[in-house]
Design a protein around this nucleic acid. Structure first.
Lengths: 409, 409
DNA sequence: TAAGTTTGCAAGAGAGGAACACAAACGTTG
DNA sequence: CAACGTTTGTGTTCCTCTCTTGCAAACTTA
């Protein structure tokens, strides 16, 4: 045999696990569903759904509620909903000027959250790990059980397999073994998944925001750097090591300004926050307030601010055209800074996009601002932490987070 | 329920179909495997493999041969191989200067093939459909059964769902309903799948060429235009309508030369065949011979040819850096013209790539020329045509292509 | 009260797993 | 050089798991 094992064979047990997964995932992603909804969703028979739902109810993952009377004929179908208290995860985001954590229950309910604003440049790995430990401990005191998983979104290039942050230029990090360090500091015996902040922002928008049900999405998230993520054909575009999506360092103007990454003419040098602020005559580190000022001044008629927005909008369109031609998404979501300036730059951006994107891909794409705003990466990280449970709920039947509550209920 | 059916439930029948698929796909993609290889591949038990293989043998899809004596201890295991005569497909490629067709049997054996060279510009849809009909009829006379599927690779932007060629600038086509036209002309009652030539070249390299077993691959195929395809995380990157991979029209030099597509500074204007030939002082339409001449002259010391290759190599590196940062592939395959110039441009291309690709993605990527050469798109198209059979062999048990041969055997 | 929809239960069918006996080839050993 | 044990693999039977089928009962609306 030329290669190792690739496609594992299926067995009856696989079927059962896949069906449990389909139900739990359906309830988590779509909210409460009646049994007959589940029949329609899965294509299984009523008997099978009944058995599966009962199994999940016994395991505490699903709560069945009496049927609602909806005015439709026929016997009412009991409503199944995910039990948000049965499985909790911790979602964390490490951004350039703040750190946030949230406890999210199965079904997507945020049970507790907290954020620490931090001045830029003060985010050494030691400090961040200490801050996260503190945040987490205070949050966990407010909920009655430990999480089943931890997800971390960090503004840097991350290797998914072991949580190594290869580089996070805006945090000043190089090769930080964040996964190991957090595991030691938090001392929670649960898996920690670390991923790029843009990938997690996209996951949040895909599950809970502007991209629900859209299987070909591109997400741009510009703050200090410009990051991005994509879901194409329903699959996250993470690349071989999870390093993908560094769209900020796509060369769009190779003779242009030199970039922190050592190259020149990277997209980020034209559409990043620093570019906008500098062009508008503000200090490049004036952050979110600076961007708001530019928008305000441009609206008030200041030509320099308007020209800065025009420049960014034009290059936004140029870069998007390339990405649209390569990836052919159905939807482009602009997050963070680019979401805020979307309305102001839309005409010039779309003009450039129309001119440069091939007609066929252009016809099918819409560009919209993100809907989730601040905290999206943490929500996405929480979704990432739920993934093992959603993929195989049966593996979590034993580890009842709330065994006492379940027993007394 | 907020949306329609997405994730179909699994049933025992699904398991059986999936396992049959795993075996047929394994034999098709990897070649003959012993029963014990299949046990290792799938993780199923000997009993299950035995039953599944016997079922496939009865259906004629698999031939079992006596064990080979390999000098290894233990009882020899019978070898199962795909029966190349049980299921045939027709793979067709429509390129800018030739049309080719091949009959491929299960397992990937080419049973017959033929190519028509055509001067550029003489490829109207009518003419192409007529040529294909003629090619196909003559090929089919040489094999004893009709194909179970037809795959077509065409150098243009294609909508997969219905085989509409939205645009094929190098053929001069606009909105050609190639799927419908071929279905009428060929009058074979089998599915016709139409796809982009670069996507099919990549599929061929992934199944039979330089990318076997590599799940994150980027493929560049430059002839008149520059096309590309990618497989990321094992999934083909086709985008929402199958329009993805138009990497030739990624803006890399927005103030640069104007492009046929209406934009300016597209990658294709810097690294396309026309750019190389023009820079070398040859007519832009001197085609493959022109490229060979440039390579020859540069090797002989002609400075103008060397400078042309340098230019193309440099911009190849620039564009690849962007794609590598965005997609994080493990392997980049240069096909067609770029495969031929690979050796000549490698140092300058890799220098630019080193300078511009982020370190993490760059560390994991290798750039190599394609191994399949001319005819790769047709082979990929044949693989595409096999896909329904590989995904569910049981669905083809009834339609025995060779029922008479099977009966007499 | 009739029609329509859904639940609940028991029997049935499909598929792979586990265990045992047996077979074939290799290498060692007397 | 032949007999032996070891290793690897086949063939068969019985078992278990899981979903489907079919029927009766429950519930709501019109």
């Amino acid at each position: 045999m030329r290669q190792g094992r690739v496609d594992i064979g299926q067995r009856s047990e696989t079927v059962h696990r896949a069906n449990l997964s389909a139900i739990v995932r359906g309830l988590h992603e779509r909210g409460p569903l009646s049994r007959s909804d589940l029949v329609a969703l899965t294509g299984l028979t009523r008997s099978a759904i009944r058995a599966l739902v009962c199994e999940l109810v016994d395991a505490g993952m699903v709560i069945e509620e009496p049927a609602l009377r909806l005015g439709t004929p026929g016997r009412p179908s009991p409503i199944a909903r995910a039990n948000p208290r049965r499985a909790l995860v911790l979602g964390i985001e490490i951004m350039v000027d703040s750190i946030a954590a949230a406890i999210v229950g199965l079904g997507g309910v945020t049970l507790a959250e907290s954020r620490l604003e931090r001045p830029r440049g003060s985010l050494s790995p030691d400090r961040v790990v200490a801050d996260i430990t503190e945040l987490t401990e205070s949050l966990l005191r407010r909920v009655p059980a430990p999480p089943i998983g931890i997800g971390v979104a960090v503004a840097g290039v991350v290797r998914r397999s072991d949580g190594l942050v290869w580089a996070a230029p805006n945090l000043g990090w190089v090769e930080v073994a964040l996964g190991d360090r957090l595991a030691r500091a938090l001392a929670l015996e649960v898996p920690i998944s670390i991923a790029n902040d843009a990938d997690m922002g996209l996951l949040a928008e895909h599950r809970r925001g502007a991209a629900i049900g859209v299987n070909d999405v591109l997400y741009i998230s510009g703050e200090v750097g410009v990051g991005g993520g994509a879901i194409i054909g329903g699959h996250a575009l993470t690349g071989v090591a999870g390093y993908g999506g560094e769209i900020g360092h796509m060369p769009v103007n190779p003779g242009g300004k030199s970039c922190r990454c050592g190259s020149s003419g990277c997209w980020e040098t034209e559409v990043g926050e620093g570019a906008l602020l500098t062009l508008a005559g503000l200090p490049p580190d004036s952050g979110r307030e600076g961007v708001e000022a530019v928008l305000r001044d441009a609206a008030a008629g200041d030509p320099r601010s308007a020209a800065a927005l025009d420049h960014v909008g034009r290059w936004l369109g140029i870069g998007l055209a390339g990405l649209v031609n390569v990836l052919n998404p159905q939807l482009v979501i602009l997050g963070a800074m680019h979401g805020r300036i979307h309305a102001a730059v839309r005409p010039v951006m779309e003009g450039e996009l129309d001119r440069r994107a091939l007609r066929a891909p252009r016809d099918s794409v819409h560009v919209v601002p993100a809907t989730l705003g601040v905290g999206a990466p943490a929500r996405g990280a929480a979704e990432l932490a739920f993934e093992p449970l959603l993929a195989d709920p049966a593996a979590f039947f034993g580890s009842a987070a709330f065994s006492t509550q379940l027993a007394s209920a």
